[in-house]
Write a protein that binds this DNA or RNA. Sequence first.
DNA 1: TATCCCACTTGATCTGCATCAAGGCAGGCG
DNA 2: CGCCTGCCTTGATGCAGATCAAGTGGGATA
Lengths: 248, 248
Amino acid sequence: MDLNHNHFSSQDCGDCPIRHRAVCARCDARELDELEQIKYYRSFEAGQTIIWSGDRMDFVASVVTGIATLTQTMEDGRRQMVGLLLPSDFVGRPGRERAPYDVTATTDLVMCCFRKKPFEEMMIRTPHIGQRLLEMTLDELDAAREWMLLLGRKTAREKIASLVAIIGRRDAALHLSGKKGPLTFDLPLTREAMADYLGLTLETVSRQISALKRDGVIELEGKRHVIVPDLDRLLEEAGDDTDGGLLV
Amino acid sequence: MDLNHNHFSSQDCGDCPIRHRAVCARCDARELDELEQIKYYRSFEAGQTIIWSGDRMDFVASVVTGIATLTQTMEDGRRQMVGLLLPSDFVGRPGRERAPYDVTATTDLVMCCFRKKPFEEMMIRTPHIGQRLLEMTLDELDAAREWMLLLGRKTAREKIASLVAIIGRRDAALHLSGKKGPLTFDLPLTREAMADYLGLTLETVSRQISALKRDGVIELEGKRHVIVPDLDRLLEEAGDDTDGGLLV
DNA sequence: TATCCCACTTGATCTGCATCAAGGCAGGCG
DNA sequence: CGCCTGCCTTGATGCAGATCAAGTGGGATA
């Protein structure tokens, strides 16, 4: 289904994030060298906006560490998150001038950017880069469709359970986990960001997290650290039939 | 942004739908011939299921005429549409064995299918096919993200207005319209299908359509034929700031 | 012409989540 | 130490949309 998902985590890359699944899993030495020429790093602090919707965007990029989000905002201020970028995720569209969404760092963040123009030229000469991008984009589309089911039809409780499951799994995948024991990880989002993700208000998020805790579905240490004693129970709460295959 | 969107409508294709934007906008004669070898047509009646989620899917396809939908269903029967396929849209993922969603014909439908295996092989040899698919997939991802904003944050009234605007525009685009006058078209979906699209119940859909009619935002002839006297008014009701650029 | 069916409409009531409002708690800084 | 600020929790109330239920209208069939 999707091949290199976990082969190149940010850990593997050290400070050579061009080896991310994003771009160059199949590049040869000359191509890697060419990518080196056009890449540069950018760091952001938690909360910082990377680019505003409508702004010129002359790079494409891959997340090295930290978390970024894509959000849309309506005139009256209603906000909906439409993308959640974890390490190794790719952002930016070859051929597009301007960003269609706000891109924000929700934690401290390092991105590996490629200048767009030369990247596009290289894509034409190097078909497997385009092929990788196609695979990744299709994965993202699948994730978006799961997300649509969540937004359109799930209850608040199910939404929270789904979000916890999604983040827990991605976190586990990122840590190359073969390790057993209860799933344990930090929620990298504020209650407000979770609300934007789920199409809820932050009060409802808070209440439903409390409810899941009260019912023993999850345990909390502090406000962010989650322990999932029974993943199957959580998935059941999430109303999830897919066995995680598609959730990115 | 996206190149051949309207250059190859189903009208242009006659019975050569391989000229759809989907696949072969840039193919030469030899490549077109190769595509001819692996293509075949399938027809469906309104309401017929083309493929169930989880079934083997050994083709990829392009819609020639009619409308198909992708939907997800939860165990308890809640349904959410996650894809709406109009003429010239593409469905199926190279490299995937099984369909992740139910695919259904909501009107009488003709699809132009390509056998998956040889299609994949051809894709490897013919990079610009992959490039076209990447462009199209990115367009679909953008559409999915608009859709997420709709599902997560819009009111029922805004959802209906948005849907009418989306279908009206796509219909206009399909008819190569230079013509002026009020936008006029058929809603190709039942109230129930609209509800599945919008994350509402069919009763709410019906009520809100009535409300928009009462308020003069739209006019109806029969139950399906819509006249939009003032597109800007409709877009305002839809809560839409994007000027339609991204709505596919 | 009657009758059946299906897509749709409309009404009455219920409820899950939003909204409005008031704290709590931890970390930073004077 | 006390105060502030940001993030979170919890309570009270309201409302948009779901649910339950009845009825309409038009097209197909006989």
